[in-house]
């Protein structure tokens, strides 16, 4: 680990709506290192999914990146032509989504959809591609791979479809896999299978994984490092152990405390007051202050910067700088 594969610096994304522009990602910076699994955690409206779509250059038509740099191995992705971007998307960076049904084409067989990128990106013949396709399905734990190659997406179960998606995403040996809520729609026993698959993948091929999720359980299982997002900003960055052991930002701490624990039952859960702010009516200063137990006048006035706590552990809270916060 060490070499930075993907570097995002000051990413800002806005959407055009009937009521004018709203900014949903506001100055997000992070990097994904070679061979590491980075988790981006946040609740709905935190901007975590929009961040990943912006990286891949697949924002919906009303969205645009207005500022920031996205560098992949010294290549500036933002200045890339559509054609060159597509090359990177197939060969170097792949993506899997929450609901594989919407990402698979319903009118083509699994085999057709698996062979296509191999023939396109790697120049294989149809026969070679078929053999590779079967092998890839086996690698993701599908035993009757030949049979599945002839099936249509609707004939497969949700877990099976997600496996096919992963096989497809891995077909051109990407260096970076972006997984947006890959197990959210799956049953828990199937989720365990997919998480194990992703973990093995990382060990066997040293693929970097960027996983976007709201589930802190999934984060704890899979991630090396974690980024916590709130209202379009990174509020905390830390290694997975640091984050769970000594969370620094009040939001992170609140999030961890409000989870029902399967091994430690409490009578009353901690809960963060209020709701995630609407991007059209962002609070002044620190965006978390209206819900923060430590929020005061200063938090309303000052927008805090990310502040290093210890090593690579950083959090966005002014109370940390003044050592007023004992978390």
């Amino acid at each position: 680990m060490g070499e930075e594969l993907l570097k995002v610096d000051g990413l800002k994304v806005r959407f055009k709506t009937d009521d004018g522009y709203i900014t949903t990602v506001n100055g997000v910076s992070f990097s994904v290192k070679k061979g590491e699994t980075l988790a981006i955690v946040g609740e709905s409206g935190s901007g975590k999914s929009v961040t990943s779509l912006a990286l891949m250059g697949i924002l919906p038509p009303n969205g645009e990146v207005v500022d920031g740099d996205v560098t992949y191995k010294d290549k500036d992705l933002r200045t890339l032509s559509k054609k060159d971007y597509r090359k990177i998307r197939g060969n170097d960076i792949s993506m899997i989504f929450q609901e594989p049904m919407t990402a698979l084409n319903p009118v083509f067989t699994i085999g057709f959809q698996l062979r296509e990128p191999l023939m396109l990106h790697e120049g294989l013949s149809k026969k070679e591609a078929q053999a590779r396709g079967v092998e890839m399905l086996r690698n993701v734990g599908i035993s009757d791979a030949e049979k599945v190659m002839g099936r249509f997406p609707h004939q497969l179960s949700g877990g099976m479809r997600q496996r096919v998606m992963i096989a497809m995403a891995l077909s051109c040996n990407p260096e970076l896999l972006i997984a947006d809520e890959p197990t959210t729609a799956l049953d828990v026993t199937i989720q365990a299978q997919i998480l194990t698959l992703l973990r093995n993948l990382k060990e066997s091929s040293n693929t970097s994984i960027m996983i976007i999720t709201h589930d802190l359980g999934v984060v704890a299982e899979l991630a090396d490092r974690v980024i916590v997002m709130y209202a379009g900003e990174v509020v905390e960055v830390a290694t997975v152990h640091e984050l769970f052991e000594s969370p620094q930002h009040p939001y992170t701490k609140g999030l961890l405390d409000s989870m029902p624990k399967i091994h430690d039952v409490v009578n009353e859960l901690y809960s963060i007051e209020g709701t995630v702010p609407n991007p059209a009516e962002m609070p002044q200063g620190c965006k978390f202050h209206p819900r923060c137990p430590f929020g005061d006048e200063e938090c309303v006035q000052t927008h805090p910067n990310l502040l290093n706590v210890k090593g690579d552990h950083a959090a966005r809270c002014i109370k940390l700088a003044k050592k007023e916060l004992v978390v």
Partner: peptide, 9 residues
Amino acid sequence: AVPIPDPKF
């Protein structure tokens, strides 16, 4: 199969 939200486990 339920993931435990604690990397220690």
